[in-house]
């Protein structure tokens, strides 16, 4: 088993695990945010406009965490900067 084999194996497994964990937490957070927003919307329907705006922005903030995860995983998979130490 060469070093490159272990490198490929490790980066694939780590990428999958990172995506799984990195999406689980933002999904929970987004669920919480939407749940609370719906509750307050049911209680105060007249506040819909500012609620929707704030909800969207909050969701964008939470979503960007998952996006960071995706970007890091893509870097690990396609442009890993540590690979050149192996190939040298």
């Amino acid at each position: 088993m060469s070093a490159i084999f272990w490198f490929v194996l490790a980066s694939t497994v780590v990428a999958l695990i990172a995506m799984a964990i990195g999406i689980m937490a933002p999904a929970k957070a987004m669920g919480n945010a939407i749940c609370t927003a719906l509750e307050s919307l049911a209680r105060q329907p007249e506040a819909e406009k500012s609620l929707t705006r704030t909800l969207f922005i909050g969701l964008a903030m939470i979503e960007s965490l998952a996006i960071y995860c995706l970007v890091i995983v893509l870097i690990v998979l396609f442009r890993n900067p540590l690979l050149e130490y192996l190939l040298k």
Binding site: S64, I67, L70
Partner: peptide, 13 residues
């Protein structure tokens, strides 16, 4: 940074 990466990440993905 977050603005740039968010838009990029969403559209690229």
């Amino acid at each position: 940074l977050a603005l740039a990466v968010r838009l990029f990440g969403n559209m690229m993905s």
